[in-house]
Design a protein around this nucleic acid. Structure first.
Lengths: 342, 342
DNA sequence: GGCATTCGTTTGAGCGTTCCAATCGCAACT
DNA sequence: AGTTGCGATTGGAACGCTCAAACGAATGCC
């Protein structure tokens, strides 16, 4: 009746001829309410357009149905798009399940932890999603110590006694990606397949390099050849181009698998300008890859976000059962012109 | 004392020997409190590590200090990065001012409005930031009608009686960007400067095209030449490449200004593969531009976010005064190899 | 000295929800 | 008939905060 005041549990209750608490039960514990009562209440809810107040609920329960995620500066730019797509998928999945994503920024891990503290204290965030995991990551330990639910998008890198302090994570199998790239190229007749990777020290990089190496060993190549076919350079288009020229001169590959689309773009530039018939495969399937016709390994980001959310909700809703808490997803190869045989 | 319970206004008050409300005043209305009292309270706050509960405050005041923003699907990918950078800057600025950014997704304007409704009802969001404004944008009208504070990143396009229903907005002057590109190229000695733009119907596109056209007219070129130098194609690398070849054959330009880095990348491909000495300038300064050495018009996204936030806070904190509610920022040119004279 | 004014502080109430204990109605079993 | 048991529903309290009004103590004025 009163169009100015927004409906509350009380007003719905009045209209349905029941008590406040019964309306609440219809929404939160339907099994406690008789069917016909439920119907009456539901009708009243619809009629009034009632929507529960998140603030009131949060005040009472201490839960906010909000997830926190740190938005990192766009490092690279080309590769940064990966996290953006993950974020989008996460927001969408969360929204479908009644959760929201709240952003924050920080300049380093310590700053991120300070934000955790603030967000937990003031906003009662329910959980966090961590990206860009790395060796000696203090963030996970901090959260685990305080029993704050979280997932990481990225494996817990570094030595760690199996099981001890393990936390749920989702990641994409980089090795499987580069292996798929090699297999693809071999089916096209390539044998001498080079690899453009990053310098030592990047766990993600090691993973991707390992997949290429393993596939090449399976193909019967020996270690000494692999060494000559393997270039290590910092990420970037220019660096990729230079390294490509070097490896071409050195080991005469007919194809090259790269650790990123940036490197691959560099390789592609060389291939096209020199008229070489060098097949190129990139990694991450960034927009640039699609734009320039670069075959690339695509991460299933939508699924990763979905699974990450599942792992979180398992912890939050307690329904979590026997489901594995460590998810490794297989990427897939998106074939484009850059690897096609001339 | 009690390490298990988190501090509340009451516990701080007790420790400081004042009342609940006085503590609240210290935080929200310091001018009401005597200096020595303030000191005592502040000490108690620090000692206990008190942090106000956002939920309780929100329940009482009806304000959440949270801003809503729709995360759009990555249309294009190359150009999508623009919004990501804006989002990052916005999150950072908001955080510095005590506001948070909450995300949501929607598939169209109607869905976005449905989200507004839900977020306003349940989460009491304080304001929204709208991106990708377009002709006949119903979102702004919906929000304005309900007196919900908002800003748009992007002008209100389309005919509109000046002043009527105007809302605060921030945008980047696209015309100034393409004009700067032309000026830059002319300084380098170019005269026949082509323009690769999008088909009619895009307001952003018209704006960018207009800047080029005006600068060319200023340079003394006549309308018939402009028509031949102006190509209209859908966004994309391949489309850009084709259009470039066509214009090269048609009007023999020595340089080309593009409406996007995607188009520019296409132009660049043609320029490099054909060995032509065609200077290329892109738009948006996306990561790809940096990667391939493409001169491009950069939008001041950090400043745009900052100003957008200012416009919002003017509405929210009521301090808003005489400051202009319409902000048009000038982009700047980032010079790279693609426009350098050979 | 009585009365209004001001400043600083306190008190009570209420925001809308869920938790908890209590209550009610009804069937079942002594 | 009395008791027990159970499912459905209810009313009071509390979450932590801010609003509005009340309050006490100074200070001013006639």
């Amino acid at each position: 009746m009163d169009a100015t005041t927004r409906p509350t549990l009380e007003s719905v209750a009045q209209r349905a001829g029941v008590s406040r608490q019964t309306v609440s039960n219809v929404l939160n514990a339907p099994h406690l309410v008789r069917a016909d009562t439920t119907d009456r209440v539901r009708a009243a809810i619809d009629a009034l357009g009632y929507r529960p107040s998140a603030a009131a609920r949060q005040l009472r329960t201490g839960r906010s149905r909000v997830l926190g995620l740190r938005l990192e500066p766009v490092h690279d730019g080309i590769n940064g798009a990966v996290l953006d797509r993950f974020l989008h998928a996460l927001t969408e999945s969360a929204q479908a399940r009644g959760y929201r994503v709240m952003l924050f920024t920080a300049h380093d891990d310590a700053g991120e932890i300070a934000q955790y503290r603030e967000l937990l204290d003031t906003a009662d965030l329910d959980a966090f999603v961590l990206t860009s995991t790395h060796r000696d990551d203090v963030r996970a330990a901090w959260l685990a110590e305080r029993d704050v639910p979280f997932v990481t998008f990225g494996r817990p890198w570094g030595a760690r006694p199996a099981g001890a302090g393990a936390h749920p994570w989702v990641d994409v199998d980089g090795a499987a990606g580069t292996r798929a790239a090699v297999d693809h190229l071999r089916r096209l007749g390539h044998e001498r397949i080079a690899y453009l990777g990053w310098p030592d020290g990047s766990d993600v990089g090691e993973d991707r390099a390992a997949g290429w190496a393993a596939a090449m060993v399976d193909a019967g190549h020996d270690a000494s050849l692999l060494r000559r076919l393997h270039a290590r350079v910092p990420d970037g288009v220019a660096a990729g181009a230079q390294a490509t020229e070097r490896v071409l001169a050195d080991a005469a590959p007919t194809a090259v698998v790269c650790a990123s689309d940036s490197l691959a773009l560099g390789a592609l530039t060389v291939a096209r300008s020199q008229g070489t018939t060098l097949a190129v495969v990139g990694f991450d399937d960034t927009p640039v890859a699609a734009a320039v016709g670069l075959t690339s390994v695509a991460q299933p980001l939508s699924e990763a976000a979905q699974r990450a959310l599942d792992l979180l909700l398992d912890q939050l809703d307690g329904t979590g059962g026997t489901r594995s808490r460590e998810v490794l997803l297989a990427p897939h190869l998106v074939e484009r012109a850059s690897s096609r045989t001339p």
